[in-house]
């Protein structure tokens, strides 16, 4: 039996879907070993957040406070999270494989002298995990060969936790060695957008090199994106070519998405792109090359010149909305 500690990530004192996905994954892992699932919220003034989380069926929520946790930095957060796991005897620590989770959890693994399984997509009854390797071309069954286990989970592979029995919230001092800290938060420049967040959107429209330049993302693709109320993504080829910034990249080295509807426009379907979107419920591909590999994973394929098809599609979507 192992008890699980879930790191509940928040962005400036607001939870996104990430925290609840981590909780659900933690609950699944705990169920397999007959252990308890606890959760931790780190920061300053996070008691309210911890209270919110307490409604999701965990055993206990820790509100871990320290001035050094006001902004996320890997070294301070790793100290706080590892100290908590050690103090409370929680042998498994779970987070999502978000930018923060990926940055933080390997340090926690070192502090616990444990092993880390990164970006897992499944939990097996025998205690092994499934995780993609080689840009999603290989699924590995792995186990952590250490008593202390640290796990990051792929956000799109687990559902968010549902409401459950209420838990107690415990205030905990983080016991951080401030003299050992080497990192300082300077600033955060949020990508300003009225559109939904890429990793949480119900519909994603992505553009590839077929769009030819960055300007065409704006004048051809964006009207469709907005007509659908979608998030905009891009292939690595489009990012590499400098058409759009990297935070739009869908793929193994970018964001992994699994929306209800994914529309790939002018994307050939390189392996590493497919790894980032092939779990979408419905996939549409628009490409003028009928041999493009993207059609092998698409539920609906349209062989057409995107510069004609995309504006038409936008018109049709708007017509539908007005019916």
């Amino acid at each position: 039996m192992s008890n699980v500690l879930v790191f509940a990530e928040h962005q400036h004192k607001k939870f996104s879907k990430l925290a609840l996905v981590a909780v659900r994954a933690g609950q699944i892992i705990a169920e397999k070993t007959g252990g308890e699932c606890h959760a931790a919220v780190l920061g300053t003034g996070v008691e309210g957040l911890a209270g919110e989380l307490a409604a999701y069926g965990v055993k206990k929520v820790y509100a871990v406070e320290d001035p050094a946790l006001e902004h996320y930095t890997a070294d301070a957060h790793a100290q706080a999270l590892a100290n908590l796991a050690l103090d409370k005897g929680l042998d498994v620590v779970v987070a999502t494989a978000s930018a923060v989770g990926k940055d933080l959890m390997p340090r926690v693994a070192v502090r616990l002298d444990g092993g880390i399984a990164c970006d897992i997509t499944g939990v097996n009854d025998d205690g092994t995990f499934e995780r993609p390797m080689y840009a999603g071309n290989v699924i590995a069954k792995i186990s952590i060969e250490r008593p202390k286990k640290v796990i990051t989970v792929r956000t799109t592979a687990f559902d968010p936790a549902a409401k459950g029995a209420a838990a107690a919230v415990e205030q905990v001092a983080a016991k951080i060695d401030h003299a050992a800290l080497k990192m300082k938060f300077v600033s955060f420049n949020e990508t300003k957008s009225d559109r939904p967040v890429l990793s949480e959107a119900r519909i994603v429209v992505s553009g590839g090199r077929g769009l030819k330049n960055g300007e065409n993302f704006t004048i051809v693709l964006e009207p469709l994106v907005d007509a659908l109320g979608a998030a905009m993504g891009a292939s690595r080829a489009a990012v590499d070519a400098g058409f759009v910034p990297n935070d739009l990249q869908v793929g193994q080295t970018g964001k992994v998405v699994a929306p209800e509807l994914y529309i790939a426009v002018g994307i050939s379907g390189a392996i590493q792109h497919l790894a980032g979107m092939k779990d979408s419920k419905v996939i549409v591909a628009i490409n003028k090359d009928e041999e493009a590999p993207i059609f092998q994973v698409a539920d609906y394929g349209l062989v057409a010149d995107l510069f004609k098809a995309v504006p038409e599609l936008k018109e049709e979507v708007e017509k539908l909305k007005h019916h």
Partner: peptide
């Protein structure tokens, strides 16, 4: 610290249908 027990190819997604026009799509 990690043991790899087995590698497998990922489950294949089936190709769907080609549509003839934007309206049909």
């Amino acid at each position: 610290t990690i043991k790899i027990h087995k590698l497998e190819p990922p489950p294949k997604r089936q190709a769907g249908k080609k549509v003839g026009s934007v309206q049909e799509l």
